[in-house]
Write a protein that binds this DNA or RNA. Structure first.
Lengths: 222, 222
DNA sequence: GGTGTATCGAGAAAAAAGTATCGATACCGT
DNA sequence: ACGGTATCGATACTTTTTTCTCGATACACC
């Protein structure tokens, strides 16, 4: 990567896994559990126990031998270490199918996200209310937004232009679902969320697996 | 990772980047370009030229010094190396907001994906048609699906149960949007697509950046 | 045709991520 | 109380990924 392997002192790969531990831990809490071991979590998430423990090593927390970690403390440590406790406000731009899906998504609460405004330019969308958020016209987006983060779900074609507008409005972090690379001032933090990447990996894995199977078969009868 | 760093002989990280090169190259083609250098692509995608060239090194292709790569050949090599040329059929289960968004998504064609059936259990959705695909009742999903891959966009609560049903129906690859870890036979390939991870990373980056800024300021006036 | 330069591509080095080892510690059953 | 054992956590090791270095090659300009 050009820059940015780490967040503070925590590797990005660890942050990613921590993000998946969180809902798993919350689920355990709901089921009445209060203690979890690295092996428990690893089994649950198809990982290795060593890796889970290593990840926890970046947090300010200590487990107890023979027992494990207190789930409450774990969650607190994760929220503290990564600031998922402070609720951060975001706006969403582009209320197509994906934007609507995100506006209705319930999992964001885990990470303290609150979408407090939505924008679009299509006349038939402006004025509608999606999950309690009214869709405003993009031109109405003034300079004093009540958010630092923007979720960008517009068409690829308009991605760059809209992104520039967001930066002018004071947005400092963009979660980019458009699939286009945004070229913006360096101080703006961009998180690309290219859904097609996951598909590409899965599809490549599937054909690789299929190829293996064929090779294995041809080895059986030469 | 428990297993699976590579696809064939290509690192997963490379496959991921290749997946982002593809639309960029297609876009260039549309604009009439036929040659691209590693530096060109790198600039366009905010990467390093060396990395682009290394990624290309895994493909069966050679560039020309002082010129670069023929875009047509690049695309062909990528499709050949990762089998994105063969169209693969998929089904989609769970036609909520996200499922609907994916059914309407246009970017899948790049990777040869064709969603040929959709399933749900909600009575008000069964029978409707989304982007040309009729939503069928999940119980109607027989044993002879015309697809190897399934896109899972049901609720977290029903994820595991539905996934098991998919495996019984002969699905060998699952693109899992539910956020839950699926526990399935090892031969089933699972690609987790946890949207919250991207948010977690962005949100952590933002607060880390904010923290840096505060520290920098307090250093100025001690 | 010769010279300069941009680009590739192979191999080495560096950095990062993941995995193993092992002593220390706290619970469990007797 | 005591030995057995599961688990943590520090350190060392291995693998993977990224980055650097540098010679080779092909185009451009003179």
């Amino acid at each position: 990567m050009a820059y940015g392997y780490k967040i503070g002192s925590i590797p990005i790969t660890t942050v990613q896994r921590l993000a998946t531990y969180l809902p798993a831990l919350r689920e355990m809490q709901r089921q009445g559990r209060s203690i979890v071991s690295s092996a428990n979590l690893a089994d649950m998430l198809r990982l290795e126990a060593i890796q889970v423990r290593k990840d926890f090593g970046y947090l300010e927390i200590t487990g107890r031998p023979k027992t494990g970690f207190k789930i409450v403390e774990l969650i607190e440590a994760m929220e503290r270490g990564l600031s998922w406790n402070r609720v951060s406000d975001a706006i969403l731009v582009g209320t197509g199918h994906l934007g609507t899906a995100l506006l209705n998504y319930r999992g964001f609460g885990y990470h303290g996200l609150n979408i407090n405004a939505a924008f679009d330019i299509a006349p038939d969308r402006v004025g509608t209310v999606i999950n309690g958020v009214e869709v405003q016209h993009l031109d109405a987006m003034g300079g004093s937004l009540d958010a630092a983060m923007a979720i960008l779900t517009v068409s690829p074609e308009s991605a760059q232009a809209v992104a520039e507008k967001l930066v002018q409005a004071g947005i400092t972090g963009i979660w980019n679902f458009t699939g286009r690379t945004l070229l913006l001032p360096e101080q703006v933090i961009i998180q690309d969320q290219d859904i097609a990447i996951g598909l590409a990996v899965l599809s490549a894995k599937l054909t690789a697996r299929a190829r293996e199977a064929i090779e294995a078969e041809s080895t059986l009868r030469p």
